[in-house]
Amino acid sequence: MVYPGSFKKLVEVLCRFPGVGPKTAQRLAFYLLGLSRDDVVAIARAMVEAKDKLGFCPLCGCLSELDSCSYCNDAGRDQSILLIVQEARDVLVMERTGQYRGLYHVLHGALSPLDGIGPEELKLDRLEKRIAEKEVSEVIIATNPNVEGDATAGYLARLLKPYSVRVTRIAFGLPVGGDIEYADDLTLSRALDGRREM
């Protein structure tokens, strides 16, 4: 197949997006070509602007505007609660619930010795410093419910013991909309552990 040079280049670039193969890239390329020049410029500009203006907040690790973190600097948020997550994208998921009004702390990973990630790599001293210096009364650990995430949660709970702070783990239960019959035993036993009064 012979493509015009700049089309080929565009497809190659689009292929670098996660989950995008050559076919999808081609479709996206044709989509872009179908847009007006202004629309294409707007898309390109949004990408560059995001890249220039966004970063991870040095205090909480959330994705934020470089000059001011929209979480840390929000006076309406409860400064006494910290929710710990593995990835910055987990914050967006939590925000979607609209239920949580405290602050965040993003680890950018989990304890994974096989990948050379230990407590130092997760910069846990920063978390400790934050808890020691700010008025934090509760820490909610929301690392992933897999071995890595659970081990990390256990490690954090022990690390934070000396600080007078309540440490909780978010509850894990049955996925909403499914039948109990299809749940695996570990999920079910956790759902039982996390049961609540009605």
Binding site: L111, P113, D150, A151, G154, D185
Partner: peptide, 24 residues
């Protein structure tokens, strides 16, 4: 068909690196 999950590695942060060491 699960047989065992060795839950002590996920529950005990002291044991976790040992289990991984044997694995590695």
């Amino acid at each position: 068909d699960p047989i065992e999950r060795f839950n002590w590695f996920r529950d005990n942060p002291d044991l976790y690196p040992y289990g991984l060491y044997l694995a590695e």
